[in-house]
Simulated assay, not measured.
Amino acid sequence: MRKNYDENSIKQLIEKYNIDQLFDNMDLPFYTIQYEKESFYNNPMMQIIYFRLG
Rank of each mutant, 00 (worst) to 15 (best):
M1E: 13
R2C: 14
R2V: 14
R2M: 10
R2N: 15
N4I: 15
N4Q: 09
Y5W: 09
Y5E: 11
Y5L: 10
D6N: 14
D6G: 12
D6R: 10
E7L: 06
N8R: 05
S9G: 03
S9Y: 13
S9W: 08
I10P: 01
I10E: 01
I10D: 01
I10K: 03
I10G: 03
K11R: 12
K11P: 05
Q12S: 10
Q12A: 14
L13A: 05
E15S: 12
K16A: 04
K16Y: 08
Y17V: 02
N18M: 11
N18A: 11
N18R: 11
I19H: 06
I19C: 07
I19M: 09
D20N: 07
D20S: 08
D20M: 03
Q21H: 03
Q21M: 07
L22H: 04
F23C: 01
F23V: 02
F23W: 01
D24V: 09
D24H: 07
D24T: 08
N25Y: 05
N25C: 12
N25T: 04
N25G: 01
M26P: 15
D27V: 05
L28I: 15
L28H: 12
P29K: 06
F30E: 00
F30D: 04
Y31A: 03
Y31I: 01
T32S: 07
T32H: 00
I33E: 00
I33T: 10
Q34C: 09
Q34E: 15
Q34R: 11
Q34F: 13
Q34T: 15
Q34K: 15
Q34S: 15
Y35D: 00
Y35G: 02
Y35Q: 03
E36R: 09
E38R: 11
E38H: 11
E38V: 12
S39F: 06
S39H: 07
S39M: 08
S39R: 04
F40H: 14
Y41I: 06
Y41G: 03
N42P: 10
N42C: 15
N43R: 04
N43V: 13
P44S: 12
M45N: 13
M45E: 12
M45T: 14
M46P: 14
Q47N: 10
Q47F: 10
I48Y: 06
Y50I: 05
Y50C: 05
Y50F: 03
Y50T: 06
R52V: 14
R52A: 07
L53M: 04
G54H: 02
